[in-house]
Design a protein around this nucleic acid. Structure first.
Length: 538
DNA sequence: TTAGGGTTAG
């Protein structure tokens, strides 16, 4: 196609028309989530005659990244002419948009060592990824590069820098940059306001907004929603939320779906489930149609309450508004059905998905493990390793180690714990140690479990000692149970959990005197156990 | 090419 462009002018308009059609078709592959159509278009271009025009190749690179086909994306990228300035922008931009932030930063470093000319269009993408990774050191290096190339006054680049420093928690640095700019635009203001709001400085964010008129700027809905997000995620203070709604109204802004979603997700994160439900209803009363974000925010509320009636109702909304195939929504649905006991429904949804995220895989593996389908959980993990290994993360291992532990697959669990570190480079966290202690303990390897705790590079927490104590109960090891219970009581003196379990061990062994002594002590100290319940309020 | 809301844990 390139050679035709160059040699035959009359064909230009024809090919431009075809290429714009092609760009639109690739776009529709993305919106219809059809990788196979994208592949067919790619194949068509190969058959029609190489090389593919750079801008079409760039679109296909983005499509492959969107579907997690990084190797295909890379092959196509390598086929784009080295002189084309869009080459790196396409790859780094796609990585950044799709949340592959480490890959975006790595590609940017590669671009630097490749000696490619720095193009200002690539900087906002890499700065966004650095911010999401909260990697201030790399951010400062890129800032130096920006300075060396004299690009610090480009509005997109400087907005990217303000956003990057804010996301890295260096909001004072973001403010310095903002103040030093000869001209500021609304995007930059919003990056700064969002930085204050996300770093807990909501009052400062409000001050900036109140004094923004002197800069010739006026806040928009994004500004207000940034502030709302800061408020609603810090305890869900209802009166403050109303205050922001009032301030928005005073400035002539009606809350939109983002404003409402922000409030809902704040309530869910603060375990204020009924407030979340009523806010969702209120949003509907205001005539705001829920979208994929609002639906995936409310679903965890249903999961945490095992409220399958409400969960199914929300699933109905997702279908009605046409977002049931959105990867966030489907992942949240898989989790909701699994947590509400409908594991078959979770399996069906998981099987139908064309695109899966790490959350989808992890929720499915975890759901299967918790329902006792441990071999199926391991098979799903093996499938993930084959089909989508780049999405494997620390939660995948928490899930698969739980499966091994519940399924008494001690050796497999031990080898996976090693594999996590050696193959995937994931450093074990407290929860992984808790899983491994549980695994070894249930398998009767109590001494090994205790040795593991002693060798841990960090302080063991309640879950780690709790796992050991639970295993001691199964195997009737009073001596070690006393050690574990002592640690539990040191860590949480007001909780009777460890003591109660220990008294059960004494009773199991027929030592009724010690069992009674312990229970009396718990009663004397007025320690209370939170009572669980298995029903949901109507 | 930039700014606001979204899913998983012992």
């Amino acid at each position: 196609m390139y050679s035709l462009f160059r040699t035959s002018a009359p064909y230009c308009s024809l090919f431009l028309c075809l290429s714009s059609t092609c760009i639109r078709l690739i776009g529709s592959c993305s919106s219809n989530q059809s990788l196979s159509c994208g592949r067919a278009l790619h194949a068509h271009h190969i058959v029609a005659g190489p090389p593919i025009a750079a801008h079409i190749a760039s679109k296909l690179v983005a499509l492959y990244v969107e579907f997690g086909q990084l190797a295909d994306a890379r092959r196509l990228f390598d086929g784009i002419p080295h002189t084309d300035p869009r080459r790196w922008t396409a790859l780094i931009g796609a990585f950044s948009r799709e949340g592959c932030h480490a890959e975006a930063v790595r590609a940017f470093c590669e671009m630097q060592s490749d000696g490619s000319r720095l193009d200002r269009f690539v900087l906002p993408s890499v700065l966004k990824s650095i911010g999401r990774l909260s990697d201030a050191r790399t951010g400062e290096c890129v800032h130096a590069i920006v300075f060396r190339h004299g690009m610090q006054e480009d509005s997109f680049v400087s907005c990217g820098l303000v956003d990057m420093y804010s996301k890295c928690g260096l909001v004072a640095r973001a403010r310095e940059l903002f103040d030093a700019m000869p001209e500021r635009d609304l995007a930059m203001l919003n990056a700064l306001v969002s930085g204050y709001a996300q770093n807990g400085l909501v009052e400062t964010a409000l001050e900036v907004v109140e004094n923004v008129g002197s800069l010739g700027l006026s806040p928009d809905l994004v500004t207000w929603n940034s502030i709302m997000s800061g408020f609603s995620h810090k305890g869900g203070d209802t009166s403050m939320i109303s205050r922001i709604f009032e301030m928005m109204a005073a400035h002539g802004f009606e809350p939109d779906v983002v404003s409402w979603t922000s409030v809902i997700s704040g309530f869910v994160k603060n375990f204020r489930i009924h407030d979340a439900y009523s806010t969702f209803s209120e949003m509907l009363v205001h005539g705001i149609c829920p979208n994929a974000a609002s639906i995936s925010s409310i679903l965890p509320a249903c999961s945490s309450m095992a409220d399958w009636r409400r969960g199914k109702e929300i699933h109905g909304y997702a279908v009605a508004v046409g977002v049931e195939r959105n990867v966030f929504v489907t992942s949240a649905l898989v989790d909701m059905y699994a947590k509400c006991g409908f594991i078959s429904q979770a399996r069906i949804l998981f099987g139908q998905m064309r695109q899966r995220s790490s959350v989808t895989w992890n929720s499915m593996i975890f759901g299967l493990a918790n329902h006792g389908f441990c071999s199926e959980a391991i098979e799903t993990f093996t499938r993930m390793e084959k089909e989508d290994s780049r999405r494997i993360d620390h939660l995948t291992f928490t899930s698969v180690l739980t499966a091994c532990s519940h399924g008494r697959m001690t050796e497999l669990g031990q080898s996976l714990f090693k594999r996590m570190q050696e193959v995937y480079g994931i450093k074990p966290r407290l929860e992984h140690y808790a899983c491994l202690v549980d695994l070894l303990g249930r398998g009767g390897l109590l001494k090994e479990a205790h040795d593991l705790i002693k060798a841990m590079p960090m302080e063991p927490d309640l879950f780690v000692w709790g796992a050991l104590l639970g295993a001691c109960r199964i195997h009737g090891n009073i001596e070690l149970a006393e050690v574990a219970a002592q640690h539990l009581s040191d860590l949480e003196p007001r909780s009777p959990g460890g003591g109660l379990l220990l008294s059960c061990l004494y009773a199991d062994a027929g030592d009724w005197a010690d069992a009674a002594r312990l229970k009396r002590r718990i009663k004397r100290k007025k320690m209370r156990k939170f009572l669980g319940r298995s029903w949901v309020e109507p």
